[in-house]
């Protein structure tokens, strides 16, 4: 029995069908993704438009009578206020303080926990895990007493006591240390012992091994931690809000909060502008560092050999 549709024709047909199905499937995925981010995109658009207008009822600056208009730079006038630069600097100091503080302490502590044998090591590890599980809100009162105590110390008081930037940074660093230590320990655990032994035999001291041989191996992890800490320091609110008074030591989020008054009417458009101002460095930062940030979850460091 002769047939006109050979196996080849059938194959082409099936191939086409398959390709079409794939295009169809992936377009469904894209459509779903696009639909799901629409609200977020609208939110950002709204935020940006709001910062440049007198009023925003919808996405456009339209008043009750339907008149379009009212573009203004008024909401951005806060940039002329020295206070904003002061609080921005404070935010930066807290963020960098956390990067350095958490990065330094946790990479040393994690090295010891990962590589050295000492009594209480296991207990310490579980303890830090439990500490990390505590919501920091529950610790606020206790921390207040600690900061108050530090305030009374002669040299440290003015730098790390209550209502100081140092105090805020100190508290935030210690709250983030459990996370940092565990994260870095994971990176250290992944490194082979041989390299370290080789360096010791080559004549390095333990500290030099850590600094010259081990740290360079976990650079991706360290970078990820640094970014993470920078972001969390930059947008910190609860701790600075609780342990500072006035604008002298406030950071950006706290400044933002102060714009929202309970008694006077709030200029929401200005709030939006300050919010956007705070967001810009984060966005820029994130665009450049997202790849590194992701490596924090994939276990990071590529081992030697």
């Amino acid at each position: 029995m002769a047939t006109t549709v050979g196996p080849k024709g059938y194959g082409v047909e099936a191939g086409r069908l398959y390709a079409a199905r794939r295009v169809f499937n992936s377009s469904i995925a894209y459509i779903l993704l696009v639909i799901s981010i629409i609200p977020i995109v609208i939110g950002y658009a709204w935020l940006i438009i709001a910062t440049f207008s007198y009023r925003t009822e919808g996405l456009l600056p339209i008043d009750a009578d339907g008149n379009v208009g009212g573009w203004t730079l008024r909401n951005w006038a806060f940039l002329n206020d020295p206070a904003i630069w002061h609080v921005t600097l404070n935010s930066l100091v807290i963020a960098l303080g956390m990067v350095i503080g958490v990065g330094f302490v946790s990479s040393l502590a994690a090295y010891a926990l990962s590589r050295m044998n000492f009594s209480g090591r296991k207990g310490f590890l579980s303890l830090t895990l439990i500490l990390h599980a505590f919501p920091s809100v529950t610790l606020l009162i206790a921390i207040f007493f600690v900061l108050n105590f530090i305030s009374k110390l002669p040299a440290l008081g003015p730098r790390f006591g209550y209502n100081t930037l140092g105090g805020v940074a100190l508290v935030m660093i210690s709250l983030d240390l459990p996370l940092g230590v565990w994260l870095m320990k994971g990176f250290f655990d992944n490194l082979s012992w041989d390299m370290e032994r080789a360096a010791l035999i080559d004549g390095a001291s333990r500290f030099r091994v850590w600094w010259e041989i081990i740290l360079p191996q976990i650079k991706p992890g360290l970078a990820a931690l640094a970014i993470f800490e920078f972001l969390s320091g930059w947008s910190a609110f609860l701790i600075p809000f609780t342990f500072t008074v006035g604008t002298r030591v406030a950071n950006l989020p706290v400044y933002l909060r102060q714009l929202i008054s309970d008694t006077a009417p709030t200029n929401w458009n200005q709030v939006a502008a300050v919010g956007l101002f705070q967001l810009i460095p984060v966005l820029v930062f994130f665009i450049f560092t997202q790849e590194m940030l992701l490596s924090i979850y994939s276990g990071g460091a590529k081992g030697g050999t």
Partner: peptide
């Protein structure tokens, strides 16, 4: 170890991946 003046070769080579061959040998 550093005072014993021994040289050791490991199965895994244990080279320092962030250093060049020159820096490895010269370490």
């Amino acid at each position: 170890p550093k005072d014993r003046n021994v040289g050791m070769v490991f199965q895994s080579y244990a080279l320092y991946p962030h250093m060049t061959v020159f820096q490895n040998i010269g370490y």
